[in-house]
């Protein structure tokens, strides 16, 4: 798959394969993400979107293929994943905040433990980050005291606190009530405006259309079709893509 830009790829997946037992989840994925590019992954549940993101963050070991991050293969078996993970941010569908820590500590813990930032600096930076995401007044709250939308914004802040070069967003609005989705998507919009490189699995088609530089349609572990959103949504080539989009339209989600 060729790049739409001339920049070298920030993150590049080549022939990535992953199976759980006899169930092949990723069946030869090739994908280049250029610096500053926002790529969304769409497709039915089970099409491999989440697994692709988890593989990109080395949370799942690959069976085959390589993942180049700034040109270095990070999927090489036996490589220490920790230094790579701290440069790649990940936000999960179910937030995964640490329930025993205050919101501020959730955000400060990464820099403190991993980057060795001292406590006061990490705390101040965490509060600043939370304020930037509109959560300055909830800095001392615990995750269980927040709404889903607020929790997800904290999770994004926790990830951003590490100054990641790439963000992987795994269906970050799927666990939210409809009226809370907007506040989280606003944050993603801001990230794009700041030039963040993002790989974003989502079911929010309208937003996907708005924010993507490129859209990839996944089906049974393969990227069946990819291109700018106008093309994928306006003139999809593959019958599977059309079928999927028709189902989404029927469900009233586009």
């Amino acid at each position: 798959m060729s790049n739409t830009t001339h920049h070298p790829a920030k993150l590049s997946l080549r022939g990535v394969r992953k199976a759980f037992g006899t169930n092949t989840v990723l069946d030869g994925i090739d994908l280049n993400v250029a610096e500053g590019e926002v790529i969304t992954l769409i497709g039915a549940s089970g099409s491999g979107k989440s697994t692709l993101l988890r593989c990109a963050n080395l949370l799942e070991p690959l069976d085959d293929g390589e993942i180049l991050f700034d040109g270095v293969d990070i999927a090489e078996p036996g490589l220490d994943p920790d230094p790579i993970r701290r440069r790649i941010g990940m936000v999960f569908q179910s937030f995964n905040l640490f329930p025993h820590m205050s919101v501020t500590k959730n955000v400060a813990i990464g820099p403190r433990k991993v980057l060795g930032t001292d406590k006061a600096t990490a705390r101040a930076a965490a509060v600043e980050m939370l304020t930037r995401l509109g959560l300055g007044d909830r800095a001392d709250a615990y995750p269980d005291q927040l709404s889903g939308g607020q929790q997800q914004r904290v999770a994004i802040a926790r990830s951003l606190a590490m100054n990641p070069e790439v963000m992987l967003l795994d269906e970050i609005t799927s666990a939210l009530d409809p009226e809370l989705v907007g506040e989280v998507l606003d944050v993603v919009r801001d990230l794009k405006a700041d030039g963040m490189t993002m790989l974003f699995a989502t079911h929010e088609m309208a937003f996907c259309r708005e924010i993507s530089d490129r859209v990839c349609f996944l089906h049974q572990g393969r990227i069946l079709e990819h291109g700018p959103p106008e093309q994928i949504f306006g003139d999809p080539q593959e019958p599977r893509t059309r079928e999927f989009l028709q189902r989404v339209i029927d469900a009233g989600r586009l």
Binding site: N57, L59, P81, P83, R85, N96, F98, I109, K113
Partner: peptide, 25 residues
């Protein structure tokens, strides 16, 4: 397990994950 995933995705080592995230809970 998702707690471990969250901690590791920040770049914490497995022993840091155990002592700061898993054991306290």
């Amino acid at each position: 397990e998702s707690q471990r995933a969250a901690a590791r995705s920040l770049g914490m080592s497995s022993s840091q994950t155990m002592s700061t995230v898993i054991l306290p809970q």
